[in-house]
């Protein structure tokens, strides 16, 4: 996304990321994250809870937001990213999620630009799964916003 660095300005829309939530990914995420809460991986257990079925880990869905930021900002995001989000609605297996973001502030500092974005993850019904804000410092030699 190197070209997008030059296009960054307030109102710029980050390229959206689309993801389908799959139970096998949730199961693998449970292993990688060591979070084996049955609400995520045990269908029988989850059916008896208010959720009515398994739900994805909130941190798995948040990983999609981080992935969108990495796609745009590369190592700048890994080195200096900040996230502040709220989990609004659980994501369920079969859900089609869209992660989007928009630049809302771009401030020039000595060696970098501090870029603040609104971020959103929504399901196909238009329900907000995650909403919040990200901040990333983009080195000046890589950006002309």
């Amino acid at each position: 996304m190197e070209n997008s660095f030059r296009e960054l300005k307030v109102g710029f829309e980050l390229p959206a990321l689309k993801k389908k939530v799959r139970q096998e990914d949730i199961n693998l995420y449970a292993k990688a994250s060591r979070d084996f809460n049955p609400i995520h991986i045990d269908e029988e257990f989850a059916r008896q809870t208010p959720a009515g079925g398994t739900i994805a880990h909130g941190m798995l869905v948040l990983a999609y937001v981080s992935q969108m930021m990495t796609d745009v900002f590369g190592e700048n995001w890994l080195e200096s990213g900040e996230l502040n989000v709220r989990f609004k609605t659980p994501a369920r297996p079969g859900d089609n999620l869209t992660v989007s973001g928009k630049v809302k502030k771009c401030i020039e500092e000595n060696t970098c630009f501090t870029v603040t974005c609104d971020v959103l993850c929504a399901n196909e019904k238009g329900e907000t799964v995650i909403s919040g804000e990200t901040v990333v410092r983009v080195k000046k030699d890589e950006n002309r916003c």
Partner: peptide
């Protein structure tokens, strides 16, 4: 119990 919010700051790779 619901995980309602998350803040993160990445300080190094």
């Amino acid at each position: 119990t619901i995980h309602v919010s998350q803040e993160l700051v990445f300080c190094g790779m």
